[in-house]
Design a binder for these strands. Structure first.
Lengths: 220, 220
DNA sequence: ACCGGCCTCCCCCGCCCGGGGGAGACGGTC
DNA sequence: GACCGTCTCCCCCGGGCGGGGGAGGCCGGT
């Protein structure tokens, strides 16, 4: 039984491209298309796709709102991949925050697109593909701090949360972080929870992975 | 009250160098020296240092054996930093495996040495400093696989354990890894435990950090 | 003066994680 | 055949982790 996909994008050309790429795969089937987020919910209810490839920027209801709406109102919701053109992806972390399972660049190679669909269909999240790293690289590999700050800005981490994330990425436990920052463990737990939510991570391990992949912490 | 340090190295020159560097710090005090691992245990019992800086290569009893002996026979044992010249550090992971709290290159800059002593004295482990990365880099940055394999060989991970570590470094839970490898969760837990022990990591987060820092998993 | 963001701490609770042990099956080695 | 390493699964158990809420204080902006 193939992986069923619903395409949501206001540009017919993009939909056609995605369809061509995905339908070339024997195990993937495009079961529907929508031109705006507002049309997504009834379609999801009717078609019950495994995966929704959702554009972020659409006229009536954007991908963020649509993602949130689907996840809130549909039970046993599909996996949602947010598709972005990357130049205007202030929405990337927004999307992860509202519960998207991954994101994808429109300029991605076909093999990557197929790969992404299969991965999220398997239930694995795609939180940190090339996109985030490119985001970091965009700000110049020399300005590591600037890049990290850029990533941070998107995630909306506060100063304290960023500090906690750095210590998490050094392998410290909540108690150790509390000791280091001279605050209570409960406080650290609050910050950690905030970090996990904002990064779209399920646990501290995933958060640390995001920290590395985004260049927030480096290999220096 | 200052951090007390015991130096263990067969070369008087190295001991003198370490002493000079450490004693220059107001909060660090060198309380003793030994020329061989065999002399360490009584000294530790008598002096009760906070930190032992232990050379790996020594005539009668090497640093690995001495580390193991101290940690097994002394109660409330000191933190142990293994000092290596790096060319012959097949012992690095050996050391971490028997319970050392960190390692240090003899060629490290004074500030780094001081930093390392303070860190382990604070109870933080220094599992993945420059050493491991240099180890990886030594094998050529082009041959990423070769480098990863080299690190792995030192850690002594089996094929299955390496596989599990890779999945851990992608943020998967034990249950998800079990599903992926089509084995029981109990099996995965066994492998994870083995990985943690061999890498000297306390939890999966630290293991993933080691994986990144060693180049075992990359930022590609 | 009010509001909102941030930091701080608190409660309860379920669960995954990791340690400690043990054990059987297989394959290769000596 | 005996041995060892690997992979597989099992038990018990404590503790850290993370979710869900709530709440108070501080500061800066309106």
């Amino acid at each position: 039984m193939p992986i069923t996909v619903l395409l949501v994008d206001d540009e017919p050309l993009v939909r056609a491209g995605l369809r061509a790429v995905l339908e070339a795969q024997p195990d993937i089937e495009v079961v529907g298309e929508a031109a705006d987020g507002a049309a997504v919910i009834p379609l999801v209810r009717r078609l019950r796709p495994d995966v929704v490839a959702m554009d972020v920027r659409m006229p009536l209801m954007d991908g963020i709102e649509a993602t949130r709406a689907v996840l809130r109102t549909v039970e046993d919701p599909p996996k949602i991949i947010v598709v972005t053109t990357f130049e205007q992806d202030e929405y990337v972390y927004e999307a992860l925050r509202v519960g998207a399972d991954g994101f994808l660049l429109k300029r991605a190679r076909p093999a990557e697109i197929v790969h992404a669909v299969r991965l999220v269909a398997e239930g694995e999240s795609l939180l940190f593909p090339a996109s985030v790293r490119q985001l970091a690289a965009e700000y110049g590999e020399s300005g590591g701090n600037r890049a990290a700050r850029a990533v941070l800005d998107r995630a909306g981490l506060t100063g304290r949360e960023a500090e906690v994330l750095r210590l998490m990425a050094r392998g410290l436990s909540n108690a150790e972080i509390a000791g280091r920052l001279v605050v209570g463990v409960e406080t650290v737990k609050s910050h950690v929870s905030a970090v996990l939510t904002k990064l779209g991570a399920r646990d501290r391990t995933q958060a640390v992975i995001v920290a590395y992949e985004s260049g927030f912490v480096g290999l220096g």
